[in-house]
């Protein structure tokens, strides 16, 4: 599998998520840096054990939502109250503030629209996911029932991995 980084790594395969969790813990206790874990499903608590920072994507979604709300306010006020105000069903069109209750559904929908779509786009971009991208997992079994820990190659690493219950170790 093509990899851009040149540093040699050791990959160990496991059959159980709890074993992986324990393995990551003990490897890190020994001072071995766990570069990556590939798993067929999210392992609860793995990010904490690996020392990953919390994701900020929810905050991004919130900002996107605010942006969508702003867009809704701008287009409704421009189109309905500035560019071409009309008397529609007696609804006050003199100022946006007076007309606003009729725009609440639009403001809500555009907030959700922008928050959801831009968040998913962000998710795809930061994870380098796009149609036709090469599979990121080095071993196809890790989307099925195997789990893989990837660590930087070094002295004693293979033995340490064996101790943690790896069923197969590949040096690459």
């Amino acid at each position: 599998m093509a990899h851009t980084e040149h540093t040699p790594v050791v990959r160990a395969l496991y059959l159980d998520d709890d074993v992986v969790l324990g393995a990551v813990k003990s490897l890190r206790d020994k001072g071995i840096k766990v570069k990556e874990v590939y798993s067929p499903f999210p392992i609860h608590g793995l990010d904490k054990v690996m020392g990953l920072k919390e994701t900020r994507i929810a905050m991004a979604a919130f900002m996107y939502g605010l942006f969508g709300l702003t867009v809704a306010i701008l287009i409704t006020s421009y189109m309905m109250n500035m560019d071409w105000p009309q008397n529609i069903g007696g609804k006050p069109s003199m100022t946006w503030g007076m007309n606003m209750p009729a725009f609440v559904p639009i403001m809500f929908e555009l907030t959700v629209f922008f928050a959801a779509h831009l968040m998913v786009w962000t998710f795809m971009v930061i994870n380098k996911l796009y149609p036709g991208a090469a599979p990121q997992n080095p071993d196809p079994r890790t989307t099925d029932h195997h789990f893989m820990i990837e660590v930087a190659a070094g002295e004693g690493v293979v033995d340490a991995l064996k101790e943690t219950g790896a069923i197969e170790i590949v040096e690459a």
Binding site: E36, V37, Y38, N127, L129, T143
Partner: peptide
């Protein structure tokens, strides 16, 4: 290209 990386999950 999904690979099930920890950060991706």
């Amino acid at each position: 290209g999904w690979g099930g990386k920890a950060k991706a999950w």
